[in-house]
Simulated scan of single mutants.
Amino acid sequence: MYGTKSKIDLAFEYQSQVAVLRPSIHSRRANLTVKFQDLYGFTVEGNVDDVNVLNEVREKVRQQGRVWWALEASKGANWYLQTTIGQGSALTSSLKFSAMANAITLKKLIRKGIPPVLRPKIWFSLSGAAKKKSTVPDSYYDDLTKAVEGKVTPATRQIDHDLPRTFPGHPWLDTPEGHAALRRVLVAYSFRDSDVGYCQGLNYVAALLLLVMKTEEDAFWMLAVLLENVLVNDCYTNNLSGCHVEQRVFKDLLSKKCPRIATHLEALEFDVSLVTTEWFLCLFSKSLPSELFAYGMLSSMRVLRLYLTWPWQSLR
C-alpha cells in the first residue's frame, strides 16, 4: 500500500504535515505563578501579568513620592493641612489664592497616589478624623476601651466569631496581638454607635485601617469618620439601606457604562448585587490587593470624598 517507503520515512512524512502546536508566550506567562508579600504583609499570588500591574502601581507611587517630597521641602512639612480655610458657601472674600492653589495641587496629587509613609497623616487629617477627634477629650478612646472591657453583647459575640476569619494567615493580623487590637477597635465603635453596633464587613475595613494608620486610636477615628461622615447613611445598620442605595447606583452605572454586560446579566436573570454587596460592605478591602486599596482609597474608590469640603466646590 505504501510502496517501498519504510515505516520510519512514513512516520516523518506524516509528522511534517501536522501543525506543531506550541503554547504562545501569553499562555506561558499566564501559567507562571508568582508569590510574594506586599507592602502591608499580605501574601500575593498571581500570574506574571498580575504582578506587573502591582509593579506599575508601585512605580507610579515612587514617582509621585518624589513630587510629594519636593513639595515638602519647598512648602513645609504640613503644607497640605492648610488647604481648607472655610466650609461650604461661607467662604468668599476670605479665600486666599495660596490656599486655593495648595488645594488644587493636593487634589491632583491624591488622585495619582500618596506615598505610603505619608498615608497615615494625610488620611487622618484630610478625612475629617482629626477634626472629629478634637471634639472629645484626649483620653476618649482609652476611656472607652476600658469602660467596655469584659462586657458581652450580640456585637461582641459576632466580633469574636469573625476575628479568626479576618485575613487569615497575615503575619500580624492573624496573631493574638493583632486579634486583640482589632477587637478593641471594633468593640469600642460598637459601643460608640449602638445603631450600627457591628456589621460583618467592618472587620476587614478596620483591619486595613490598622495596617495603614499604625495605631489603634487613629484606626478607630478613621472608622468613625467613614461611617458617620463619608459613606451613605445606614450602610451598616440592620436593614443595610445605605448599601442597597449603593447597589442601585452601581446597577445604573453598569447600564450606562457597560450596556452589553448589563443586558447579558439581565438575560441570565442574574442579580449583580450577589457579587457586589461584599465589595461595598468591605470597601473593596477584601476584593483588591492591599497596595491597590491603599493607593486608591483617597481617590478612585470614593471612600474619602475630600472634594466635598474644598474651597473651589462652592465657587463653581
Rank of each mutant, 00 (worst) to 15 (best):
Thr145Ser: 11
Ser94Asp: 12
Leu81Val: 09
Gln64Tyr: 04
Tyr198Ser: 03
Ala181Met: 10
Pro164Asp: 02
Leu226Lys: 02
Glu13Lys: 13
Leu118Pro: 05
Met1Lys: 08
Ser27Val: 09
Arg316Trp: 04
Arg302Lys: 13
Leu95Thr: 14
Ala11Arg: 11
Arg248Cys: 14
Ser290Asn: 06
Trp310Ser: 13
Glu246Ile: 09
Lys146Thr: 13
Val148Ala: 06
Arg302Cys: 04
Arg184Leu: 05
Ala90Tyr: 10
Ala181Ile: 03
Leu304Val: 14
Phe280Pro: 14
Lys75Ala: 08
Thr105Asn: 12
Asp49Arg: 05
Val152Ile: 15
Phe12Asn: 04
Leu240Glu: 03
Thr43Asp: 05
Gly169Leu: 07
Arg248Gln: 15
Glu149Leu: 09
Leu210Arg: 10
Val61Phe: 05
Asp193Ile: 00
Val136Trp: 02
Thr276His: 06
Ala188Phe: 10
Val187Ala: 10
Trp312Glu: 14
Glu56His: 09
Arg183Tyr: 10
Tyr141Phe: 15
Tyr14Lys: 14
Ile114Phe: 06
Phe293Pro: 02
Val53Pro: 00
Leu54Ser: 05
Ala77Gln: 13
Lys35Gly: 01
Glu228Ser: 15
Tyr14Gln: 09
Thr153Tyr: 03
Tyr307Glu: 15
Leu298Ser: 12
Gly197Thr: 01
Gln200Gly: 04
Leu54Gly: 02
Phe250Asn: 04
Leu10Tyr: 11
Gly178Trp: 07
